[in-house]
Design a protein around this nucleic acid. Structure first.
Lengths: 144, 144
DNA sequence: AGTATTACTATCATTATAGTAGTAATAATA
DNA sequence: TATTATTACTACTATAATGATAGTAATACT
């Protein structure tokens, strides 16, 4: 049940954009530096996020990326679903035709329950929650 | 966030043993036939389950496997943890030393929350729940 | 014109996964 | 005691997924 690095890095990328929300577009280079991640790899993650309408971009010099809507309107579930495909722990919970046993397979119900629980949890956390928490902890640490 | 087939098959294997609970040991061959899974592959899954004390075995002819304790005392979490390693969506949520950023990484809290939610859900489902559900549905289907 | 950035595509190395195969040990039973 | 049915154990392999790198094209600011 590991979350892919795609999804984990994607959340960190979006968190950075959340921190900057309201300001100028942010360079991928700066996100990569702040989060200590590969810029090239992030550039692959930001593409689907843009295609899904979570992020806008500005090309050319002084370009960059920015959130397409306020951080309180973006949940971790939104991000993870884009980068992870979907949240179902087993494909059978979505598509009956994948398995001939689906009509009477009892364990299927387990994965359906689990998916609902994962979905609910990730939906309950917004980017703004992360940003607020970070700012609060920064003050406690004595940050500027 | 896919559950491995190891864990999924393991739950089905344990479900079969749950159905048989109270009776004689069950052959892997029969479990494999009932669940339409490879017997050889199941033999790899049942070993850790035995090592963890969830299952007992009887060697030799007329041997087989049986639950080590009543199905209402075995949760899906027990099974998945054994076959999946652990439930953490990210390794960093368990071990600080894995990532130099752990002390101030905000997204880490997300994975901790998610792990708790997954853990709680899987813990809430016992083998007996699955067995009872199966028997109930069988009656509704007009099974013997 | 030059430079800094996003956009896109291809490739690759590593690891994890799922599954197969074969042999050894054990114990019931004929 | 020989046979047979089963668990126990170990090794191997093919495939797919993942994480990551590299290079080039397009765009737009200065």
């Amino acid at each position: 049940m590991k979350m892919s690095t795609r999804a984990r890095y994607g959340v960190r990328l979006m968190f950075e954009l959340g921190l900057r929300y309201g300001g100028k577009p942010m360079f991928l280079k700066d996100i990569a530096r702040n989060e200590e991640l590969s810029e090239k790899y992030l550039s692959q993650l930001v593409m689907p996020l843009k295609a899904s309408g979570l992020v806008n971009s500005v090309r050319g010099a002084q370009g960059g990326y920015l959130l397409a809507r306020p951080p309180e309107q973006i949940t971790v579930k939104d991000i993870v679903e884009i980068l992870e495909g979907d949240l179902a722990p087993s494909d059978c919970s979505k598509d009956n035709s994948l398995c001939a046993r689906s009509s009477y397979c009892i364990t299927r119900g387990v994965w359906e329950k689990l998916e609902k629980s994962i979905s609910k949890t990730l939906k309950s956390i917004t980017l703004n929650d992360l940003v607020s928490k970070f700012k609060k902890e920064k003050i406690n640490r004595g940050g500027k």
